[in-house]
């Protein structure tokens, strides 16, 4: 889509574009290029010399069993967060979309967690599940279930999944609600007259019509779980205990910032970039198709 009527000149528009382009260039393309460049280099331990090593960094990363573990862990973590956050949000959105008293209040009360930073969400969950000071942590221990996410890797994973999903539900809720409201009321009424009970109406009419929204959210949630949950993990478990909650993005951080292994960190960044671009491409392809719906 293009405008038919436009203003003349090229100096003004370029001046208007300049800030955006400069910032994008300096803080986006330059570092992205640097990442690609560094991923082909290796520095010695003292940072004195660099040499070109081709794809060796990639080969090292992709054959490193701890990295592959982190990859698998990230996959499990992301899938769990996405599934949990999507299903809870969908369930709540369907309930809140019904014509009931106080629907608007419920909506407001379910929307606000969007404003909570992932790191703060983690802190709130820490307050609940800390083995010594957390209400539920102590209850579990009192009930004879040894609970200490600082020692037990599975419990740590469970906690970061719960905190991450908790924070994402409100986002999904808003989109599912918008999706539900865009389904024409008469179509649902037609299904009711055709004899479909609420459950059947949901699975045969509502859910198929929501699937574009659900797919869009799936991609967004996966990207969120892969990258934005750094704060949750950093605040709650620092990737531990051991490496039990070390996801790919956390690994980039530890290798690059803590261990100063720049070549490997850069290679990991490039792999992640490819991953995000692939996810985004899938999404655009899908959005293009859904336009016809």
């Amino acid at each position: 889509m293009e405008k038919r009527v436009i203003f003349k000149g090229w100096a003004l528009p370029l001046a208007l574009l300049l800030p955006q382009l400069v910032i994008t260039g300096v803080f986006f393309f330059w570092p992205a290029g640097q990442a690609v460049y560094q991923s082909f280099l290796r520095e010695d331990a003292f940072g004195l010399s660099r040499q070109f090593v081709g794809l060796e960094n990639f080969a090292d990363v992709l054959t490193d069993p701890t990295w592959l573990d982190a990859l698998w862990r990230s996959g499990f973590f992301s899938a769990s967060v996405a599934f949990l956050a999507l299903s809870v949000a969908l369930f709540l959105a369907v309930q809140a979309d019904k014509h009931i008293r106080g629907a608007a209040t419920y909506k407001t009360l379910l929307i606000w967690p969007y404003a909570v930073a992932p790191a703060i969400a983690a802190v709130l969950w820490l307050f609940m599940f800390h083995p010594n000071i957390g209400l539920f942590g102590r209850m579990l221990n009192a009930a004879g279930i040894p609970w200490n996410y600082k020692l037990n890797g599975d419990q740590a994973m469970l906690l970061v999944i719960l905190a991450s999903a908790w924070k994402q539900v409100s986002y999904n809720f808003i989109f599912f609600l918008a999706g539900l409201q865009s389904i024409p009321k008469s179509v649902l009424e037609a299904a009711a007259i055709d004899g479909a009970r609420p459950a059947r109406r949901f699975w045969t009419v509502v859910f198929p019509l929501l699937s574009p929204t659900a797919f869009f959210l799936l991609v967004v949630n996966l990207v969120y779980a892969f990258f934005d949950t750094f704060g949750v993990i950093h605040a709650l478990t620092q990737g531990g205990p051991g490496k039990a909650t070390e996801t790919l993005i956390y690994r980039v951080y530890t290798d690059g910032v803590m261990n100063l292994n720049l070549g490997s960190s850069a290679a990991q960044s490039v792999i992640l970039m490819v991953l995000v671009i692939a996810l985004t491409m899938v999404q655009f392809r899908y959005i293009e198709r859904k336009v016809h719906y």
Partner: peptide, 10 residues
Amino acid sequence: MLPVEVRIIP
């Protein structure tokens, strides 16, 4: 396409 976290180190 690229969230800041991905290109954080460079």
